[in-house]
Every structure is written in structure tokens, then in C-alpha cells.
Amino acid sequence: MKHQNRLQEIFTKYGIVFVLIVMIIAMSMIKPSFRTLNNILNILTQCSVYGILALGMTVVIVSKGIDLSVGSILALCAVIAASLGQSSTASTKYFANMAELPIIVPILAGLLIGAICGAINGGLIAFTGIPAFIATLGMMTICRGFAYIYTSGKPVSTLIPSFEFIGQGRLLGIPMPVVIYLGMIIITKILLNNTRFGKRTFAVGGNINAAEVSGVNVKKILLWVYTYMGMCAGVAAIVSTGRMVSAQPGLASGYELTAIASTTIGGTSQSGGIGTVWGAVVGALVLSVMRNGMTILGIQSYLQQIVEGVVIIVAVILDMRKNARKA
């Protein structure tokens, strides 16, 4: 009896991992091409961009916030980084007389712009008290607008080879986007679980009043939460630009929702204070495997969207039952 209870406990706790494993086994049986090394690397590469966003989003949602602006911030960072990383042979150059800059310049520019946008989000939320939903909704349109103005609506292309390496190169056989994703997973994991900042973020999300009373500087924590999210968007922008060796102002629209979905599927609770980094990774993988699998199986585009929606809802229902049982 006791044994059975524990099994049930394990299943509710790691339910989504079982779902992922079942999906992978089923796909491998139906389509042998699914389990080739190349395809597995594809799946990982394809989820790296929104996977990185989902990492930042986990921190945000743990603090009981939300960030709708990440897709637009990503686009703004990407076009600015790309414009600083153009090769001298580019036909349409953003800075006509600029020499080719070392790759570190566009990377730092992307991260900086992301951090600034994130800090603006955090500042608005912490110091004006407007809801995160509204503040980031505003930033979503503002950043998209800036991306369009900066580029006059045109893509930025013909980048230096080292940009291409970030998107398509390999390190020890592993595609660079996956390497960067792994790095961000480790950083976020340490940040959330092994630092005072992480502990306080959980405290703020769990009960903001209690956190304040116990001496946590809530405003400062919120400012850094959104700044970190913005930086994640900057990293994702660099990966995305590298993958396509170009950047478009319309890039990544709707990615904020994919990131929120990944985080949610992974069990991070919208009511704040609960969430794990590995959950965000599993959630992103579930979406990536699902998209890859359904495309390989030749399932119609329209139907794919419906299946994705159903999976998100079911995941949250399972999750709520899990948390209810705990209480």
C-alpha cells in the first residue's frame, strides 16, 4: 500500500517527464528516422532559442510575474547585434564605413540592449506598481516598433563568419546553440537555487508581504528578475541571429507565449513561488519533440496547433492536482 502511494507520488511529481519519454518511444517506433542522432540534435537546436527564453521566464514566473515582451526584445537585440556584425561584403550596410568588428561587440551589444529593456520592465513594475502584464505588454509593442524603425522593416544580413559559427558551428560534435543553451541552463539553475537572489525571488513570489516584512528588498529583486529575463532574450537573440546568419525585425513574434507554455508545462506555477529550471527544460523539450514529431508524421498544420493547446492545458491540470495534494 505504502509502496503504491510512493509510486503515485513519483508519477505525479515527474508526470511530464514520463509524457516526454512516452512521446519519444512512440515516435521512435513509428518513424525510425526520428531516432537518428541528427534528428535528436535538430530537436535540441530547435528548442534552444525559446528554451533560453523559458529559463528567464521561470525566474519571472517564480517571482509571480509575467513577461510578454521577450519576443520583441529578442527581435530588437537581434537586429542591433546583426547590424554590428555585418561583413564588409554586405550589399546593404547599416553603418557604411564601419570596419568588421570582432564578434564580441555584437554579442555584448545584444546582451546590453536586452538587459536595458529588461531593467525598464523591472523598473516599471517595481517602482510604479503597475501590473507586470501591462508593463510588459507596453514594452512588447515599444520594442517591436524600435526594431522596425531601426531596420526600416528590412532584414539585416551578410554577417561575419564567426556569427555563423554561433548558429551552425559545433563544439565536440554538439551544435553551438545547444552548447549555449546548456550553459544558460547551468547559470540559471545556480542563480535560482544556489544564490541569495534565488531564495529571495522564491520568497517574493510566494508571499510578497511576508518577504517585505522579513527584510527582503522586493523592488531590487524585481528589478533584477526582469533584467535577467532581458539578458536571456539577448542571448536567445544572438543564437537566433547565428542560426539564420541574419536578423529580421518581425522575428520571434509569439515566442513569449512559447516560453510561457514551456515553463508552464514544466510545472512552474502561475501563482508564484513554485518552479524549477529542469521543468522549463523538459517543457521546452516536450514542445520541440511534439513539433518535430508531428511534422515528421505529416500531421496537418492546423491540427498541430490544436494538439499543442491541449497539451498545455492538460499539463496545467496535472500540475494543479499535484500542488493541491501537497497542500
Binding site: 528516422s33 537518428t36 535538430n42 537546436t45 530547435q46 529580421q248 518581425g250 513539433r291 511534422t295
Partner: peptide, 24 residues
């Protein structure tokens, strides 16, 4: 006709979808 899929006019989606098609 092997497949048709919406990429919403976007370059990144065109890339991901094609990667999956190559596998399929």
C-alpha cells in the same frame, strides 16, 4: 506533395520546418 506547413512568412520558421522535413 510531401508536406505543406505554415511558417508565418518567417525565416526562422522556414529553417526549423525544413530541418524536420530533411529528417522526415
Amino acid at each position: 506533395l510531401l508536406a505543406e506547413k505554415n511558417g508565418d512568412w518567417q525565416r526562422d520558421q522556414g529553417m526549423s520546418i525544413t530541418e524536420n522535413w530533411i529528417t522526415a
